[in-house]
Every structure is written in structure tokens, then in C-alpha cells.
Design a protein around this nucleic acid. Sequence first.
DNA 1: CTTAGGG
DNA 2: CCCTAAG
Length: 623
Amino acid sequence: MENGDPSLGLEDGTIDVEDLLVEPQDGHLSMDNVICFDEKIAKNAMDVGPVSCSSGGSDTGIARKGKDILNGEVLNAMPIEAEDGYFRLDNGFCNMGDEYLLGVEFAESITNLDYGSSEGLQASASDCQIQVSTDGSDTGCRSDLYRTGDLRKCQTNHKAESSKFSGTPICRGRETLDGYNPTISPRSCSLQNSVKSRNSSSSSFLEVLSDENDGTFSLADKMFYSSMTKRNDEIELTGQNDSTNAIEGQLTLATSSVQESSSNVLLTQKRSRKPTQRYIDGLADPIPTYSKRKREASSSTIKDKSLGGKERRKCHVGPKAIKVPPEDPEEFSVIAIQVPFGSLANQERSESQSFDTVQHVDCRNSMTKSKGKYATINNRFDKHSPTVEFKKRGDCGMGQKRTDICVTEAPSRKRGDCGTGQKKTDVCVTEAPSKKKDSHAAATNQKKRNDLAVAVIRKKKDVSFTTESPKKSDDRRLAVHQKKRDDTLTDESSEEASGRRKHHRLWTISEVRKLIDGVSQYGVGRWSRIKKLFFAASAHRTSVDLKDKWRNLLKASGMQEQGSQQGEKKRNVAWRPLPKPILRRVCELATMHPYPKGERGATKAAARDSTDITLSDYRRILK
DNA sequence: CTTAGGG
DNA sequence: CCCTAAG
């Protein structure tokens, strides 16, 4: 928006869009859809209100986006928005339509999202048409558009794709809007046409993309993806130069021209951007995996969708308060309870950065190992995440995270394609089998891989975890991470997320405190209740999680006590950071109401003591 | 579905 | 965190 394109008249925001839509007079245009979409956006926006900040369902995202668009702040917001993850799609979605390619991509990506998204797609499509018509390249463009729509329908539910592009589309949309002017549209049309012609053999561009066999296209696809992926960079570029030119050039390269020279240029431009994870995945297995995944995704998507939607809804509630948890100084200093890598403090300060870095690192690793080709891309990442850091983290204990990611990735693939998945999984395993889990996972995955059903289930689960966005303030930062990750990596908000996410959601002290409070109130073992009352905000953190966490707390506390009293194992420095008050409380609670609520703890408590609680507790009990 | 427990 | 078993 900085550029402020008078031509578009973004200032008008929604109105403009509507105008655009209206202009085309095209009977075919699905005005209804468009209108609905707008309404929906408006509604969402209203619902969402100013909060917009963190998580939210796709709906929220849309609303927000719509809002942003209206305000004309979208462009500026870019970096921030990146964190939003799939939401952005919606936005982009709204804005899109100027460029055929964009529209197509969007359509694809969006299709998978939600009903709303589908609407959005249609709307976008309509937009595209309209614009095109306005420009005067009616026939060709329209046909393309229609085509796109058809394709969309056919290829519906490619979550993977959608996730991939979720972030990008939005940006594009913005760009398009900004740069939008009569001049551009013709080009886009031409591009489209060229693509079309080029792909004449295959029914559609999309198909081409999906087509595994098309070796020639792979490069183009790559390029295309990369361009898409690098929305941030693009934006920057746009801001600096002629937004239109840059975009167009990228598009052109991606779509019509497979020429190396042009592609190189594109790469150069894009290089600055950081590819999404999804993107990376795609790169790793440029087309085949992707397409396969896609297909798979479609089948499994439904489940994910339902689940994801659920989660999202919950999430909406989440973003309520931004309050930064004022931790007790003591606690704060200690901050992370179980965070091996990076202190919580750091995390809190630079929320996503650390995570991003990690992610990038992971990506890089996978990529690098997977294919040398992508080294370039990796380089891009480098600036964001220095190798050193990665190393360091890995050594420290980041391994877990890394591993998880890898593992996560594997599942997605496995879902998509058994063969491919295996291959990739292996890579991942090789890379980061630091954890026992990893090895286990690898084995398991392999086992399961064959069994699609299992994979699906897993995926489903993952989705739920992933999709959900943190509601709490504490979680917020995590949420942000996630979001960012989604966007940055791949925005696989849906699919990929499902595959990889689930793992590790760091427990913030506030969460721990809540847990403790809950335990103190309801006693140990009332996890579900505690969950409801204390963790209603956080979609994640199931009762099981609470239980596990409590277990860990007990362990930790026990350890601490031991350490302090007996000076024995202090090696567990890893989560040493636990605030003493918390530990104390944990201990008390543990002793106070061990399982049987009552204090008798002799029976159960004793048992527990033997394992978790330690001598101190035991002593107390005895006393 | 919830809990407990092991991995 | 995941998974499974048991109530």
C-alpha cells in the first residue's frame, strides 16, 4: 500500500472490489458468490473486530483480511500477516483475481480451505474474469478463467497445495491490486494464454503442474512455486521497483516461460524470499510428490477439514487477550520449564524468530540432504537462520524439535505417496534420528506408511493440533510461531500442518501455573475438568497433555527436591528452569492430594512417590 | 470419553 | 507428545 496505487483505488477497499466485480457485467460471473463473499467478509470482520491479531479460523482470517484490505493496509502488513498462516489465503483470495495465474493458484489453494474459501475462490474467479473483461481481453481470459474454475473443481481439496500457497496468494493479491492497472491485465491474459497454449496437450495449467511426467515443466513449476512462496520478497521487490513489472515478470517466468534466463532472473529475485516448508517439500520432490500428495490430500482432506474447522472455531476464541503474562520475576527468570533449547525469555521476546530459525534450519537440512539443487534456497534461509545457530541448537537438544519436524514431514509424504513418503522419511530419519522417538517414529512410520488408514488418522490428529491456534496470551506467542511457521514454511495450515505439527507445544509457565492451580483445585486426575476450566482457551493441551505435563512436573519437582536436598542428580538441568515456587507447589500438591484426592496417599501416593515424587515427598507422607 | 501409564 | 489399555 505504500506505493498506493491510484489505479486500483485500494483506499476504497471493499467498494473497489465490488466495483470491479460489478463492472464486468458478465452474466456468467457469479455475482452472488461475490456478494456473498463480501458479506461474509464483512460479517467476519465484524465478528473478529479489531482483535485480528492471532489465530483464528479461516473465517477469521478472511474477515481480517477483508478488513485489512479495506483499510488498505495490507501491503504494509505483509510481514506481519505472514504469521497469520492460512488466513492470508483468504485475504489474498479476496484481493486476487487480477492475475489469472494468481487466481488459479489461489483457487487451487483455497479450494481446500473451507466453504468460505470456496466461495472466496469463486469470487476471486469472478474478479479475474471481470478484470479481464474490463481490460478487453475477454474471450481468452474468460475461457481461461472458466477453465480454472473447472480445474479447481476437479482438483478440489488439495490441501497441500493450498497450504503451500496460502501465504503467497494473499500477497499476490495485494500486489496485484496495487499494481493493478489496465496494462497489466493484458499481459496476464497473454501469459495465461501462453500457458494454455503451451499446455494445450494437457488440459490445463494446473494439470500440467500436477503432471508428474512432465519433466520440462518441473523447472517451471519450481519457479512458479518459488515465486509464489516468496511473497515477502516479492512485496519488497514490488515496493522498491515497479510492482507490476516484478510481479509480472515472476508470473511470466513461472507460467509461460521456462526459459532459463528468465527463470534465473526470477530465481534471483525470489531468492531473497524464503520458501515455505511446503514449498521446500515440493522442491525436494518437485512434482511427483506434490501431485501425489495432492491426490491423497483430497481424500484425506475431508477429515482434516472437519477437524480443522472445529479447531479453528475454537481458536477464534483464543486470540482474545494479548496480555503479556506478567510472570513473577523469579519465574520469569527461569521461564521455561522444559524448554531445552532457547530460553523462554528469548522466545517471548523474539517470538517467532527462534522458531522460525529452527524451522528454517530444519527445512534446510531436509532440503540439503534431500537435494543439492535446493542449496540456493537454503542460502536464502541462511540469512534468517545462521547455520551456527542450527548447529548449536541441535547439539543442545534441539534435536528433538528437529526430529519432530522431520518426522512430521515424513507422515505427510507417506500420506501422499507411499513410495515417495518412504524415501523422504528415510532421509529425514537419517538426518535427525537424535531422538529415540525418531527412530521409533521412523520404524513406525515405515510400518504405518504402508497402512494408509493409519496415516490418515494420524494426519487427522495432527491437523487438529496444528490447526488449532493458541488462544491464550501465553500461547499466543506459540501461536504466532505456528502461524509464522505455517506461512513461512508452507502454510500448510491444513495438510502439512497436520502432518508435522502436533509435536511440542512448549509449556509456558503461565500454563504450568494454571495447571497447578487446576490441580490444587480439582486434585490430581481431574484432567478433563481442569482442562475445561483452565485451559478452555487453549485448544491444544488436552487432558492427556495436562496429565503428562503434570507427570513431568512431578518428576521435575521431585528431581529438584532431590537435588536440593540430596544433591543428587542435578543433571536434569534441562528443565531446571522451573520456577521454584512452581516446583514447590507441585510438590505440595503432589503430596497433598495425590491421586485419591484425599491425602491418604499412602497407597497411590506411595506408588507415585516411588516413581515420581521422590524421597522428600515420601518423607512428608511418612511424617 | 476419560485416565493411567509406557514409550 | 503419542499410543494403548482399562474403567
